[in-house]
Amino acid sequence: MNKVITVTVNGVQQVLEVEPRTLLVHMIREILNLTGTHIGCDTSSCGACTILLDGKSVKSCTILAVQANGKSITTIEGISTEGELNPIQEGFKENHGLHCGFCTPGMIMRITELLKDNPDPTEEEIRWGISGNLCRCTGYNNIVKAVLYASAKMRGVPTASTEPEFV
């Protein structure tokens, strides 16, 4: 039997009818057509589907849409206005923190919570903090650099050089 749920997605309240087994990520991608949230695995391993559920970063492939009833969801489409980059997005661009872009939205959503909880993380804390997100392209160096950049920017301190350390 289908369920009717009410969710607030990127600030807009939506009433949706879903099968109980509908995965939250499918609700986001297929019903709401917010295709910035990606699917990369079956086992909650890759983090490509990471979104914020009531402000907490979660893997939307391992949550049922019905479980989001009454909650608020933020996806990559909801973190900045098109045409502008928020400090995390800017950090990724300035520091070449993305290659193919597939893991990027999940990464950014995870980092959004990471920096909220820990505004001035160490490199080690960043690496552990994104350990639920796999990236196959970048080797992570520049993602770490992007987070440090975003952290500095959000705290209002000068950002480090974005030039490559390619001596």
Binding site: S57, V58, K59, E113, S131, G132
Partner: peptide
Amino acid sequence: TKLIADPQVRNR
């Protein structure tokens, strides 16, 4: 807890 799965999984 640091060694259980990953931050997103620990949120759930």
